[in-house]
Design a protein around this nucleic acid. Structure first.
Lengths: 148, 148
DNA sequence: CATTAATGATACCTTTAGGTGTTATTTAAA
DNA sequence: TTTAAATAACACCTAAAGGTATCATTAATG
């Protein structure tokens, strides 16, 4: 009943890049401020750029930059970009056909929980994250050993 | 952002046993109505009995039976019994020290989601599940090959 | 008291999520 | 035009969740 680490990482990345939305961030820049294993971070950046939430610029002086208006990227978009099912369509007991045949005992109650979550994720966009100011990104002052 | 399969299984098991709360169910009985791999189900029943949500009776004619009043077992109890962290204490971004140092950008909003979930799980007890009537437990008519 | 039908314990196997290592490609700039 | 600094691709490794196999133990009953 939590997001996967991958999803949390993706949310961190975008919420960090929002601090200076026009800036080109290298993977190293992000690594040094967020607490994400470097090579895994690289992998996620590629996924995020393929999903067109960020642009990637290759070559020397390259990096990544947010590719849309901040109010066009919701947290739901980010969660979906890394392939997580944000509860929205999943029975409380995990029954496949709950919605179709007889509803499960928690159907109504859990539906309201689902809606709550879905609404928060869909209605919160990156401009709102930005507006809430720079938060603790727990720079553990990670030091990169090998830059690949 | 869903319960683990293990948690879903545990929730199914108890919600099924509630149909006849005084009855002694064998693992086989439960297997035939719920859609849970038999040996894994056996394992979970042992966990649930160790956590004292159900009693186990060994030997021939043995089985499992709910061990408390239905209104003394909440869904939260079940979730906790199988070791899942039901979101209640976990930062949106997965930051360890979110609650202590600076709060994260989603702290307030997500806190309300957390409370919603926690409240539903804590306030829903098995008698309520029972009261909502027997629901579809998707008996896929599982057939047990080897009874161990 | 042997048999049978149940649970208990423990070790192992499989799949998936998370993470690492290596090499290739791109591009700015000396 | 070579070098350096960045991303891209792909293969591999590791840990945890989910699931299986085997044998031991318990207890009712003929």
């Amino acid at each position: 009943m939590n997001f996967s680490k991958t999803t949390e990482y993706a949310l961190r990345i975008l919420s960090f890049m929002v601090i200076d939305e026009k800036r080109l961030y290298t993977a190293k820049d992000i690594f040094e401020s967020l607490n994400i294993p470097f090579r895994y971070l690289r992998k996620l950046l590629i996924i995020l750029s393929k999903s067109e939430l960020i642009d990637s610029i290759q070559g020397k002086n390259g990096g990544y930059r947010i590719s849309k208006n901040l109010n066009d990227i919701s947290l739901m978009d980010i969660v979906r970009a890394v392939g997580e099912d944000p509860i929205s369509n999943h029975c409380f007991f995990g029954f496949d056909n709950c919605a179709f045949e007889k509803k499960c005992a928690m159907h109504e109650k859990w539906d309201s929980v689902r809606k709550t979550i879905t609404t928060v994720l869909s209605n919160t966009t990156l401009d709102e994250i930005k507006a809430s100011g720079p938060h603790s990104f727990i720079s553990n002052n990670s030091v990169l050993i090998k830059n690949v």
